[in-house]
Design a protein around this nucleic acid. Structure first.
Lengths: 233, 233, 233, 233
DNA sequence: GATGAATGAGTTTTCATTCAT
DNA sequence: GATGAATGAAAACTCATTCAT
């Protein structure tokens, strides 16, 4: 029954089956991946705009312009799609963060400055992404799958910041550098979290520069040799 | 027109009618209020244990041991009950906070220390209450009624902390005391918010004394005359 | 236990029990009847304003300013109250009709004219009463109790009109006077019903004088000796 | 872009894509439409048998043998289904009426006779359809959507009958033909309405031939040249 | 007799998931 | 792989009736 020529939707006609299947598979895979990503994007849009509670399958497919069954086809269900969207959003966050760290002058205080400025930059702290982060935060406590990708002390960020603060504390010659560094790490991450929440709940009052100054004021207080209220010195 | 004596069927004679009616209705009203409060408590339990998304009318009444219709009788619907629960939780938070502030030595740095220690005390930062706060935070962005009672920069807290930081900055003789005070207010509230999130996402790793030290380290950095890493001096 | 003086809410003090009970009973009965009627009136208001479907116990007691339990106390349930309201509305209709018939010149054609004019008068065909009639009509098919009091060919009206048309047919010297009379009776009652419906569905377009003329035109067609298009001659 | 041949998995090759898709979707759509109509039919059955008040979603789906969700899938809610059922019932009424008018001899009096006989024929005035009409009438006053499709002076019927009566009045040489025609139109429609109500409230006593004679008697009274008591002459 | 808080059966509606095509 | 009609469990809500006071 496969012994007939194959005509693809794009008009290509294959007489030889081997190449026909390969081409068809490729086109399918492309379309498959596109659809998969479209669902993730639509899900994130949805979460940002109307919140996780109202993010229904109907909303998602309506935004993606795809069919109802596709969510189960690609992800096996809505919950898995949400988890996948959380994973993807988290990945995007780290991509930006790593890019910004790489661009910084190569010493701990400038690297740390880059982390803070990245977290408060429009690339990271914008209405859509902050909303998504906020929604996933809300769900993380009661949804194990989402919790994995939405975790303040997420090992990556914590280790990253921890390494920087440790070196800075040592360079500053602080007694008990290690304990101090752990405290500053916890504090810095908590502070950023709190400022994100502030941004979301008061988008009009929030001022990016003020927020940076708030952080750097605290840092200049404890590391007066490395920071002033505008950043690393 | 009710200013005449009243004889009840059981023979009791009330000269003052107010007291007669009051007596008759007291138990009714007591039970009514008790049921109303039981619904709020059950709702908060529910939110703490299984999260806002899964907090259904069925769950609430099952925990409260009351009937389905009572939610609509007392609150007019689930949404109003949730809003009322948010209001109540917020009120409880301020009751504790005010009690702790009142108990503190009467100067700004000790009052501020009381605010911080209150926010990190088991009375406020416990599994149930922090979960509830966290859930309402998550809903606040897309639910106006809840937003009212679940607001970082909530005027009360912000004004309270703002007044303290301002006086401390002045006492410390900081240049630009007012701007500095505003920054420290924003920072302190954000920091606490972040530490609460930390507590929730990592309940086993979290250490209350560490968390206090994190905050006081930052404060001792900027107000070395008023704070050391253990609190006000 | 009844051997004590009795103090009524209105301040009267009875030492002798016999008279005390009598007085109390009288006052109770008065209030009882008033409450009973208030419930019927409120029910009819409700039906007129928001329709039978939306006429709930809550709506009725809210309009009557009485307590929830009273409906069951006085009528044994909502359905009985509705039936009683239907009975009362029907009774009121006949009171007006009889009054108008009595006031008419004492011959069949003027009596019939009075029936028609009564049915189209503001006393009978007004927004409230026509709405009530209409709503009960709708319910009559599936509610036996209401059907009893809301019946076109209600024996009373049918007999009343039938007697008049018979005499007029005889006076007019029509062949088959009896059959003709029966047809005109049916037709007249149906016509009035239809005009009431017209009034309700098109309250602004409806014109009382036009409606009368419509009826009298038909009557003057069949009984040219007794009617012209304005009424009996 | 769909203008290319399509090869289905089963080997069928469609040159014209329209027909391919059409074939594939035909059975789907057929079933969809069938279910949609089944819901409307079940709704009308329900209304006829137990009345609008007792017509619940559960009753409808139980009669249709379909699932609960389908009502919202096809109509978006019970209210829309009811409105759609009202629209459909109204359409069916006009289909029969138009068919009967078309079959009549082509002059105004015979056309009008056809309207009257249609309205009193078993095709229109049967237990089911009359019940449905009656129920919708009852709901029309307090339900705007239903009112649209359940209106005595419904422009279509009124215009239709109005045109006929006008021509008959002119042919009969009546003075003030236009006003007379308007009155007879109103009267005829009201009369039919009233007879339908009569049929419903007294299904056993009602006699179709009597009802026709009632109407034609009135018409022969006013248009003796065009009607006798059995119809047009 | 009067009250109104309480009940819970029954209503409409939502929505993740399934599955024939 | 893709579609979208269909499903039905579970959700929120309504409301006549009950009954302790």
């Amino acid at each position: 029954m496969y012994d007939r020529p194959l005509l693809l939707p794009d008009g290509t006609l294959f007489v030889n089956q081997e190449s026909a299947f390969a081409a068809r598979r490729a086109s399918h895979l492309n379309r498959k991946d596109k659809n998969r990503q479209a669902l993730i994007d639509a899900t994130l849009d949805c979460i940002a705009e109307i919140g996780l509670i109202r993010t229904s399958v109907s909303e998602i497919i309506s935004r993606a312009g795809l069919s109802r069954g596709m969510i189960h086809l690609h992800f096996g269900g809505k919950d898995n799609l949400l988890a996948e969207a959380a994973r993807y959003a988290n990945e995007q966050y780290y991509n930006v963060l790593n890019k910004n760290i790489s661009a910084a002058v190569n010493d701990s205080k400038h690297k740390l400055e880059a982390v803070i400025k990245s977290d408060l930059s429009p690339e990271v702290l914008n209405a859509r992404d902050a909303s998504i982060w906020h929604e996933f935060r809300g769900a993380a406590r009661t949804n194990a799958e989402i919790a994995r990708f939405s975790d303040t002390r997420d090992q990556r960020l914590h280790d990253l910041v921890g390494a920087m603060t440790t070196r800075i504390c040592i360079e500053e010659g602080l007694p008990d550098a290690e304990i101090a560094a752990r405290d500053y790490t916890t504090g810095l991450i908590a502070l950023t979290e709190g400022l994100w929440t502030d941004y979301l709940l008061h988008p009009t009052k929030f001022d990016r520069k003020n927020a940076e100054r708030v952080v750097f004021r605290f840092l200049s207080g404890v590391w007066s040799g490395s920071f002033n209220e505008f950043g690393a010195v």
